[in-house]
Design a protein around this nucleic acid. Structure first.
Length: 1011
RNA sequence: GCCCGGGUGGUGGAAUUGGUAGACACGCAGGACUUAAAAUCCUGUGACCGCAAGGUUGUACGGGUUCAAGUCCCGUCCUGGGUACCA
């Protein structure tokens, strides 16, 4: 018997970790009479640094909920796994030659050990790892289903609400054979030609396949992609932030490539509508809505004057058509070369060339710059016959709508700016239009139409309807819905990902036989792209698909496999189904398991996945449902975003450098050199294998940052070489003193890229500029999301070693609301530790002997218990864990002062607290004489009977300010309360004899006397 | 620019339908126990005035609604996140 001391905590926690494992208390059953409850955490990427204190925040919350639900009689599924494919392991492999599977396995082992230390009730028997061939076999299988499927908007089995349905490709082929595609209202590329059944039948195998590719959910096409040369791969839109890659911060450019894609756009409407049916944080839903970007409008044709042809535009504001004063085409628009007049030809061609060569990044930084060129051509306004000049400009995007807009400078700020810049006319079509719509509070959705012929006097909504009818009557256009969302690129030129179950026969992509799954990753001699720029899988020897001889086939035919791999989001887009039946070798999960567990009741994870993982998962879920493999339309019923625990780096010194100076840097070493005239004045080795773990370089859109941690980097003192090459310390008073070295003169400051000590290409790259304009040096504390790259990681093991897992768990919950981000700060942890010790002491005397008695509890004690139980239940149901901890503290304080050691009080509290602090409560539970785990007990019920009060201490406020308190029976009628209050000394004193104007009595709440 | 959040003591944060602002904890100050320290326990702790009783003031700022506003409405400022020529 002992005190709740460090040694005792260690003994208790180790003991129960062993016991729980040995007894298998965390196993979930797929068959149960009990109602199911599925609690899921977003599974982590197992990085090399291990778990930090930010990781467990969400896991602790979900663990509390699962334990709570279990105690309440639910059959709870609470699994954990690893999103194990990913760039860091691969980058590490490229540098070291170590197989990524080896590092990944090692990291996963560390993660599991760390997670177990915190006492999570995960059912490890159901663990999944996306990089495990037994798992990605089913990722490949799902890919095959999506390849062999198309989206039929007119599906007889799809209901109108969901706007059609995913169907097997065979139904498409049958229809093409019968009627061609004239009746097919499919979601596919706009340029798909209309064909007849005869056309279809005349196609050879290759042509047929090319045609089908326009319909398949997983398909190959020539698409514009985000190409990241540094990573040697394409990235999806959500992996690109501010024109650079999310991981690594490398520049990204637009490039056309023959790529695998997923037709998520087919599901746009359903993804949008489904948001209304799920209980998710509003900001996440809003982000998805914006990402999907639905806009309702119309497409209509403008006839080109004096030439053949029309220009089709998309607009959401057809009501403003009388305000159109010019038209703008994207520079890439196919009609540009046709309609441009001879006089304008040179100018237009020049502009197109410039626009084409401008990178995405440059365009972004020049958002404000207005540019364009006049084509010399005119179109006719179909409503009033007005002559409208046609311009080209890169503010119109080729990839959205029709790549052409009708410009209404009086109601669109971009059109307005363009008109002002090129001095084009402006016609007001809305009442209240002002001279400068960019500055004044102009609302294009208020006021009546003016200068608009038959539309005059209508508001914008009515005008749209009238105008649409006219468009239809003229036969020049149709209603049209556009989505901002693009199809998702589904291939990566990387090694560490799922191989496609695809081979090529005469250039035609074909699926491997299901019995040959999984197509496992081949061994390669290196993990980087080949010298000729092919993906790493091209290095694999004899990596091809072998088909045995059949009647009409040559014996043993061999075909090359697809060489790209699936993106990071492939494995995470269906993993919650695998947990339901993770060891199944025949199916991704059995029908029974899927129909029992159905969907996730509570999903906890970060909001950074709002437009990536969470959207893709919904997409795959819908497709799988249409194809009959799963039961739910939506995968995650309720979502909670836990905030980030941020790290505080107090010793970060930062040097920011304008990105125009840094063009590239090697992956190994970066040395920053500052020159004055011809002498080197500053040489800073900022990153590299020799730089250790306390330095980091990040490249963001606006600047490139070198950071290093001063505290642990005393070996790293930036040195300056003066003319005589003697080292001079560059740090003064713990501050980088750049002023000392950078005066007002102009410097030449080449940034040198060194690779293992050698200049990268043997030459100096020199850029001219003023140092002070382009570089800033700063020392400041930073509060940011915890990550290796930010040098601010706190490892939970330290806390567990010092205070125990229970304290860590309770403390993380006590820090503040789950959904809020907060900096990690251990200053309050003692308070939580003391609380647990006081709780422990309720059961023990000073000698550490258990002193719990079976005596009858008093009414006061029962009141404390039931009040606490009621509050805790309310708080857990509302995910307000910080307030439940505080309620436990209050309860513990009250019982301590009552010196309560009665079983009838302490036992239910122990159960309630066990979701938060499982180790200490399990030990106390055993000390109370129980043999079975506390997890198998049942949650105590509170009862109102102990909470009813007979009287209430009313705050008596006078003119809204509380002046006194008076105790009255709760059932005392208002009139009597009023009488007694008015007669009281306080009221007498304040009223000075005058009669009050008004008296408000809210029973059981407050009394307010107005004088 | 646009779309969401958020602004409460020295600090993290409470305050469920408008009804006692600052729960709980940290920190700080004082006290008890101790040779001493640690641990523990007790007391105090938004600010201002006052010996005290008590009073004034107070939830980013300025207005408003109400018997009553941290909470509702209008405007302003600051801040975190998302997004960006999407017609």
């Amino acid at each position: 018997m002992a005190d709740y001391s460090k040694d005792e905590i260690k003994r208790i926690e180790d003991k129960w970790r062993r016991e729980w494992k040995a007894r298998g208390v965390n196993k979930a059953e797929n068959h149960s009479e009990k109602p199911k409850y599925y609690v899921l955490d977003m599974f982590p990427y197992p990085s090399g640094v291990g778990l930090h204190v930010g990781h467990p925040l969400g896991y602790i919350a979900s663990d509390i909920v699962s334990r709570y639900k279990r105690l309440q009689g639910y059959n709870v599924l609470h699994p954990m796994g690893f999103d194990a494919f990913g760039l860091p392991a691969e980058q590490y492999a490229i540098q070291t030659g170590q197989h990524p599977a080896v590092t990944t396995e090692k990291n996963i082992a560390t993660y599991i050990e760390q997670l177990n230390k915190i006492g999570f009730s995960f059912d490890w028997d159901r663990k999944v790892e996306t990089s495990d061939p037994l798992y990605y076999k089913w990722t490949q299988w799902i890919f095959m289903q999506l390849f062999d499927a198309w989206y039929n908007k007119k599906s007889v089995n799809g209901n109108l609400l969901t706007n059609g349905k995913t169907e097997p490709i065979t139904t498409l082929i049958a229809e093409l054979e019968k009627n061609g595609n004239k009746n097919i209202d499919a979601v596919c590329e706009d340029d798909t030609p209309t064909i007849t059944a005869a056309d279809w039948k005349s196609f050879d195998e290759k042509a047929k396949e090319e045609f089908l590719q326009k319909y398949r959910i997983a398909y190959r096409s020539d698409t514009m992609v985000n190409w990241c040369p540094a990573l040697g791969t394409v990235l999806s839109n959500d992996e690109v932030k501010d024109g650079v890659s999310e991981r690594g911060g490398y520049p990204v450019e637009r490039k056309k490539m023959w790529q695998w894609s997923m037709r998520i756009t087919a599901y746009a409407e359903r993804l949008l509508k489904g948001l209304d049916t799920i209980d998710w944080p509003e900001p996440v839903k809003e982000m998805q809505r914006n990402w999907i970007g639905k806009s309702v409008g119309c497409e209509l044709d403008f006839k080109v004057e004096k030439q053949e042809g029309t220009i089709r535009v998309f607009t959401t504001r057809i009501d403003t058509i009388y305000g159109v004063t010019f038209m703008v085409l994207a520079p890439e628009h196919e009609l540009v070369s046709k309609i441009t007049t001879a006089e304008q030809k040179a100018e237009v061609e020049n502009y197109v060339t410039i626009a084409k060569n401008r990178s995405e990044r440059e365009r972004m930084s020049e958002v404000k710059r207005i540019s364009g060129a006049f084509t010399g051509a005119y179109v006719t306004n179909p409503f009033n016959g007005a002559k409208i000049p046609v311009w080209i400009a890169d503010y119109v995007l080729a990839g959205y709508g029709t790549g052409a807009v009708m410009a209404v400078p009086s109601s669109d700020t971009r059109d307005y700016a363009f008109a002002k810049h090129f001095n084009l006319p402006i016609i007001d079509v809305l009442e209240g239009s002002t001279s400068d719509i960019t500055k004044d509070n102009f609302d294009p959705k208020s006021g009546k139409m003016i200068n608009s012929d038959s539309l005059n006097g209508l508001d914008w909504k009515e005008a749209i309807e009238v105008a649409l009818q006219k468009v239809a009557a003229l036969g020049i256009g149709i209603r049209k819905v556009n989505f901002r969302m693009r199809d998702a690129i589904f291939g990566r030129q990387r090694y560490w990902g799922e191989p496609f179950p695809v081979y090529y026969e005469n250039g035609i992509p074909k699926l491997v036989d299901v019995k040959d799954l999984p197509v496992t990753l081949p061994e390669v001699d290196a993990y980087k792209p080949t010298e000729s720029g092919e993906p790493p899988l091209a290095r694999a020897k004899n990596w091809s698909y072998r088909l045995p001889a059949t009647g009409d086939r040559q014996p043993e035919t061999v075909f090359p496999f697809e060489q790209t791999t699936m993106p990071g989001w492939a494995g995470s887009s269906w993993y919650w189904f695998r947990y339901m039946d993770s060891k199944n070798e025949k199916e991704f999960a059995s029908k029974e398991a899927i129909s029992y567990w159905k969907d996730v009741d509570l999903y906890i994870g970060g909001s950074e996945h709002a437009t990536g993982h969470l959207l893709y998962s919904r997409f795959w879920c819908k497709a799988l449902k249409d194809l009959g493999y799963v039961d739910s339309e939506e995968p995650f019923k309720k979502l909670i975003n836990q905030g980030h625990i941020q790290g505080v780096s107090q010793f970060i010194k930062e040097i920011r450098i304008d990105p125009s100076i840094i063009l590239k840097y090697s992956e190994k070493d970066v040395t920053l050199c500052v020159f004055k005239d011809d002498s080197l004045v500053l040489e800073l080795n900022v990153l590299g294998s020799s730089a250790g773990h306390n330095r980091y370089v990040s490249q963001e859109a606006s600047h490139l940052t070198f950071k290093y941690k001063d505290k642990s980097a005393q070996d790293f003192i930036p040195t300056v070489y003066n003319d005589s090459h003697a080292n001079v310390s560059f740090v003064e008073n713990n501050k980088l003193n750049i002023d000392k070295w950078i005066a007002k003169e102009t410097y030449y400051f080449p940034i040198l890229f060194t690779d293992s000590g050698y200049w990268r290409d043997g030459t100096w790259k020199t850029f001219e500029g003023t140092v002070s304009d382009n570089m800033t040096f700063e020392t400041r504390p930073e509060i940011e999301k915890m990550s290796k790259t930010k040098l601010n990681v706190v490892n939970p093991d330290e806390i567990v070693d010092n205070y125990g897992a229970d304290t860590l768990r309770v403390y993380e919950m006590f820090l503040g609301p789950l959904e809020m981000s907060k900096p990690w700060n251990t200053s309050g942890i003692d308070g939580v530790f003391k609380f647990l010790r006081r709780f422990w002491n309720l059961f023990h005397d000073q000698n550490g002997n258990v002193v719990v008695t079976d005596a009858e509890p008093s009414r006061e004690e029962l009141k404390v218990l039931h009040k606490t139980l009621k509050k805790i239940e309310y708080d857990i149901e509302h995910f307000s864990f910080n307030t439940s901890v505080s309620e436990f503290m209050i309860c513990c304080n009250e019982l301590s002062s009552m010196k309560c050691n009665k079983r009838a009080i302490l036992e239910p509290l122990t159960i309630a607290l066990s979701s938060f602090a499982p180790h200490i409560t399990e030990e106390l539970w055993q000390l109370l004489g129980h043999k079975d785990s506390i997890l198998n007990s049942s949650y105590p019920k509170w009862s109102e009977e102990y909470l009813t009060e007979s009287s209430f201490e009313y705050p008596i406020s006078i003119n809204g300010k509380v002046r006194a308190k008076m105790n009255f029976a709760l059932d005392m009628p208002k009139e009597d309360v009023e009488k007694l209050v008015l007669a009281s000394e306080v009221v007498q004193k304040w009223s000075e004899g005058k009669a009050p104007k008004k008296v408000i009595v809210v029973q059981g709440r407050i009394v307010n006397v107005v004088l």
